[in-house]
């Protein structure tokens, strides 16, 4: 029988489990309210951090091109002769 502590360890590390261990974990989660809550919290965390990340300041197309140009110019001060993506 898997204990709560072992279930929490398996859920949060995401380490690989044998078939038997996976079955025991599933059984434990079916019967154990607190561990069910723990698992739900991890799902909420994943979704919330995903949303937070999606909302962060990303480069606009113009800023992105400027940054790429700057990087390429710093590597090839004399130009690349045949710029990719440019016509």
């Amino acid at each position: 029988m898997m204990s709560c502590k072992e279930s929490v360890e398996a859920l949060s590390s995401g380490r690989e489990l044998s078939l038997a261990q996976r079955a025991m974990l599933r059984l434990h989660l079916l019967m154990c309210g607190p561990c069910g809550r723990f698992m739900a919290q991890l799902r909420i965390l994943r979704e919330a951090v995903g949303r937070l990340n999606a909302g962060q300041a990303r480069l606009s197309d113009g800023e992105r091109l400027r940054l790429e140009d700057r990087i390429i110019a710093s590597i090839f001060p004399n130009g690349t002769n045949r710029g990719f993506n440019k016509n």
Binding site: E68, I71, I72, I75, F76, T80, N81, R82, F84
Partner: peptide, 8 residues
Amino acid sequence: PAAIERVV
């Protein structure tokens, strides 16, 4: 250069 540029 073109390969490096593409990666960048």
